[in-house]
Computed example of a mutant assay.
Amino acid sequence: MAGLNVSITFFSLVVALCQALRWLSKWLLSPGAYSCLARELAGSLQLCMSCLELRMLVEIGLWGGGFGPDVVLTLLFLLFAVHGISFDGASANPTISVQEFLLLESNLATAVAKLLAEGVGTGLGWALTKLYWSWELTQLHFIQNLISSECSSSIHTSLHHAAFVEGACSFFFHLVLLKLQQSHPVYRVPTLAATVTFLTYTAGPFTGAFFNPALATAATFHCSGNSFWDYVQVYWLGPLAGMLAALLLYQGNIPRLFQRNLLYSQKSKYRIPRARVTLQVEGDKPQQRKKGEKNTTKPHA
């Protein structure tokens, strides 16, 4: 269990480092630069380093560390709960940034800046984690260094099925995210963490269950077994299609592309009052008929 204790210490240090980076960036940068650059970079760095270490525990810990999947799933839930609390509103996921753009919550420049920050954050996280593994603090890291240069693909099923799995994971994740976007963090954070844990447990054996294009790029694109285009179809196009399907199902439309609701008819919430019946009297002046008054006008000859 010594290796597990080292990994838990690593998780704690990563969260503390990225939190310090967020505090420093908020102090030095303008609110706009912080929200679309520094915050996303820190969140992606934290997510990438944590998930790479956790993935190492999944692949090696079962036979090299003597602990089962229940330990890893518990760590996964706790990590995503901590991420939800500490991210300060960052998505650290390109599909969420694209979703915000399609919902008119950000403009094109902001969306592109977030995507670039997420790419830089995940790339930096991959490099720092590889450096940390090279120190070989535990036997698990020693084994990881031996096999890292010859890693195999995370796709353990047919290409079409793998793309469907990643798309389905992204669909359910974004559907829950859209449903809980206005909820209090006390409910939103553990629900999202539980959703990620369930999807990882269900879909992990097939594709690794990334449903995050930036994270998948850092974790598996360099591994042999599939071509670059295969990885793009599964880990980029699959999650993007799942996000679009969730957005269309939840909204009924995609605001950035079209305003018309394709799925749901929108009824007006305002009632139109009925017009009162009026009588036409001499001088063509309208006169309101009183309640209970009979019509005494006679037809003209």
Rank of each mutant, 00 (worst) to 15 (best):
L57P: 11
A109N: 14
L137E: 05
C48T: 13
L124D: 00
L146P: 01
S44D: 05
F101M: 14
D88C: 10
L78G: 04
W133I: 05
T122K: 04
Q99G: 12
R55Q: 11
E118P: 09
Q139N: 13
A38C: 08
S106W: 07
L124T: 07
N93L: 06
I143H: 05
A109C: 12
A111L: 09
D88E: 14
V112K: 02
I60T: 14
Q99T: 11
P69F: 09
T122N: 06
K114G: 00
L57M: 15
L57N: 05
E136I: 09
G84R: 02
L54Q: 03
I85F: 11
L140C: 11
L41G: 00
I60A: 06
E59G: 09
L57V: 08
G121E: 04
S91V: 08
L103I: 12
G66K: 13
A42Q: 01
G64T: 11
V72E: 03
V98G: 00
G68T: 15
A111S: 11
A90C: 11
L45G: 01
N107Y: 09
S50D: 07
A117N: 02
C36A: 08
G119L: 03
E118M: 06
G68R: 13
E100T: 10
L62R: 11
V58I: 14
L131K: 07
P69A: 13
P69C: 14
L115R: 05
A81S: 14
V71E: 05
V58T: 09
C36G: 08
E53M: 13
W63V: 15
L124K: 05
V120S: 04
A109H: 09
S106M: 12
V112P: 01
L102G: 02
R55K: 09
L128N: 05
I60R: 08
H141M: 15
L128Q: 03
N145H: 08
W135A: 13
R39F: 04
C48W: 02
T110L: 14
H141N: 15
W126Q: 10
K114L: 07
L140I: 14
L57G: 06
E118K: 03
E100K: 12
G61L: 02
L128E: 01
F142V: 12
G65H: 01
F77C: 08
L45P: 00
C48K: 00
D70H: 11
T122L: 03
E53R: 12
Y132A: 09
L47A: 01
V82H: 04
A38D: 00
L102H: 04
L76T: 00
T110G: 07
V72T: 14
V82R: 06
E136Y: 04
G123S: 06
L79E: 01
A127W: 07
G64I: 13
G68A: 14
G84P: 02
L103C: 07
T110S: 13
L124I: 08
L75M: 13
L146S: 12
D70F: 11
H141R: 10
F80P: 00
L115F: 14
